[in-house]
């Protein structure tokens, strides 16, 4: 019941926003080259559906590869850093520096080293996606209840066994929460890289249509991107709700 009400609210808001946007464009006689209305964008989406689909698939492919590799890198590095905590101490400043470095300025380096296209996009996606995974894996592994660890140790478990039997399950909610950031982050990485260093993909479509003043096409590209972004977020949120629902206790002021 509560869910349907929420959905209804969301739907009404979106309809109101779209309607007032259309009205604003029509009544204000705003040119398509400045701000196209939703109907114009919808028409462009339909008429350019085949190239848009192709570019979307390219972007989606790069994002999923970058995301997957980012998760692998983040999880492996996280487990390693927790297992050998001196390594964590030693690498912490370096990791902070890497985290802080704006990834957009790294794209030109990737461009220089690997050329245009998929490789710099995937590298940028990995560099953005693995940080939330890494920090959450570490937080998850460190937040293990010490009584559990003591109990297992008393029963004669080895360090690796404790990590596997208690650490990993305890980390899952953190991991799923991190997916919610890492997925969109991977998409951002891909788009940024495509805007600067690619000749296909949605990032390229958006920059290119801006350069030739085809604003409806640009909006259509952004709409495709939004769809991909919402889908990624939705999938991650679904998994999070399933595995970490206890974190949202639903208190309201």
């Amino acid at each position: 019941m509560k869910k349907t009400v929420g959905l209804l609210y969301a739907l009404i808001t979106i309809i109101i926003v779209l309607a007032s946007w259309e009205a604003f464009v029509r009544l204000g006689h705003i040119r398509e080259q400045i701000l196209p209305g939703p109907t114009v964008i919808a028409r462009t989406l339909w008429s350019a559906r085949i190239p848009l689909l192709r570019h979307s698939l390219v972007t989606l492919m790069r994002t999923s590869i970058g995301f997957t590799l980012g998760v692998v890198v983040g999880v492996v590095l996280g487990v390693v850093l927790v297992y050998w905590s001196w390594l964590n101490e030693a690498l912490q400043p370096l990791l902070t520096a890497l985290y802080c470095l704006p990834k957009s300025v790294v794209v030109p380096i990737f461009l220089l080293w690997t050329g245009l296209g998929t490789t710099p996009a995937i590298l940028t996606a990995i560099s953005l996606a693995f940080f939330p995974i890494l920090t959450n894996i570490i937080a998850g592994l460190l937040s293990i209840h010490s009584d559990f660890v003591d109990l297992l140790r008393l029963s004669g478990a080895r360090k690796g066994q404790i990590l596997w039997k208690v650490g990993i399950p305890n980390t899952l909610p953190y991991l799923f929460a991190a997916f919610k950031t890492a997925g969109p982050n991977a998409l951002v990485g891909v788009i940024v890289s495509e805007m600067i260093a690619a000749s296909n993909g949605l990032g390229y479509v958006i920059v290119f249509s801006g350069a030739v003043f085809n604003i409806p096409l640009m909006f259509a590209g952004i709409a495709c991107l939004m769809l991909i972004g919402i889908t990624l977020y939705g999938v991650a949120a679904f998994f999070e709700k399933r595995y970490a629902h206890w974190a949202f206790r639903g208190a309201r002021v």
Partner: peptide, 12 residues
């Protein structure tokens, strides 16, 4: 809006 990469809005 959060899930659109804001970076994509730069050309606009």
């Amino acid at each position: 809006l959060y899930s659109i990469p804001k970076q994509a809005l730069v050309p606009l």
